[in-house]
């Protein structure tokens, strides 16, 4: 069963028009050693002003799905299937040139490591200004003036003085601000932030997240936040999609999912985070390793690591965790989970 057959979930009512609809997105990498299935049927929508967190560990396909949306995967070896509709137009079927026009003013992205994402041979002002030169044909002087304006907007001190500095002359937090300035230069409708704070220390993380939230409030852009940091998700996101082995295994509002997980994997994630109340107790890790994407386990991909799995005679008919792939289904109002026994996990 594929996820395209699942009923769409009602979205939180706080948001505006739909900006992005991702439907049954598949990404595979064809290699000599075999096919690596990085993303296996991911669907979600993003509305104006909404913050969607995509949560998952390394290799869960969260970054690859974002790169597929941006169209920055190398094709081949990557093969992308499904549909990605930006304001109703399918980006996968449009021409490369039309896609390029969307990148920047339509959808923009910030990356995890700002130092390696900035070109070492150009000043930051040149790089921010490049957005205006590429998309609006601005002159060098106009572009530089706008770059200073943007650096002010992302709260880089002494912007006019620092506009000619090179990326390596900035601190980590300031570099991420430069990256954000580039990404928001053309007021994108959607901003994808791929682990924007992972490379930063905790106080700077908070500043950068605050900045992103403020910018979102000003412009009403949709924000897709890709992260493995549960704390960041809890603070800034409206809704959350948890990914495992290239699939969304649970989806709902942050409040719901964080209060009572509907999938054993989410439950495991929550239990592996230190809690102030549980001080002195032992953390409960998720046993085992994330699956090899070239050989994803049959049935529920999480079953080899799942404490709640039911196999063979224990399982209900057609719901054997080792052989039957659980679809992403509505398990409570506004909640979806891909587990045969989600109701048990939720405790309803």
């Amino acid at each position: 069963m594929t996820q395209s057959q699942i009923d769409p979930t009602p979205k939180p009512a706080t948001t505006g028009a739909t900006l992005l609809e991702v439907d049954d997105l598949h990404v595979e990498f064809r290699q000599r050693s075999g096919v690596v299935n990085a993303v296996n049927g991911v669907s979600y929508t993003l509305a104006e002003g909404e913050t969607l967190a995509i949560l998952g560990e390394s290799g869960s396909g969260k970054s690859v799905s974002a790169q597929a949306i941006m169209g920055i995967l190398d094709v081949p070896p990557a093969v992308v299937r499904g549909s990605i509709r930006f304001e109703g137009r399918d980006m996968l079927t449009m021409s490369e040139e039309d896609q390029r026009q969307i990148r920047g003013p339509g959808i923009s992205m910030i990356f995890q490591d700002a130092l390696s994402s900035l070109n070492p041979v150009y000043s930051v002002g040149w790089q921010i200004g490049e957005m205006f030169r590429v998309h609006q044909g601005a002159s060098r002087k106009e572009a530089k003036a706008k770059a200073i304006e943007l650096m002010d907007r992302v709260r880089i001190p002494a912007a006019a003085k620092r506009v000619n500095d090179y990326p390596h002359q900035f601190s980590g937090g300031m570099r991420q601000r430069v990256m954000i300035a580039m990404a928001i230069a053309l007021d994108p409708r959607i901003l994808i932030a791929d682990e924007p704070t992972t490379a930063l220390d905790v106080t700077v993380q908070a500043q950068v997240m605050d900045l992103l939230k403020d910018l979102q409030r000003e412009t009403g852009m949709g924000l897709i936040l890709i992260t493995h940091d549960l704390g960041v998700v809890n603070e800034v996101a409206d809704s959350v999609a948890v990914m495992y082995a290239g699939r969304i295994v649970e989806r709902g509002t942050v409040d719901d999912v964080f209060t009572d997980a509907g999938h054993p994997y989410t439950e495991g994630l929550m239990n592996s985070v230190p809690q102030v109340e549980a001080k002195g107790g032992r953390l409960q890790p998720i046993v085992g390793q994330p699956p090899n994407l070239a050989a994803i386990p049959s049935g529920c991909p999480f079953h080899p690591r799942c404490a709640r799995r039911r196999l063979g005679a224990e399982a209900a008919p057609g719901r054997d965790c080792a052989t039957d792939l659980p679809p992403l289904r509505l398990v409570a109002p506004g909640r979806e989970a891909a587990c045969h026994y989600s109701e048990e996990v939720l405790g309803v």
Partner: peptide, 10 residues
């Protein structure tokens, strides 16, 4: 990464 970033910026 900066080449991917440049592409992501259109």
């Amino acid at each position: 990464d900066y080449v991917a970033a440049a592409r992501a910026m259109g």
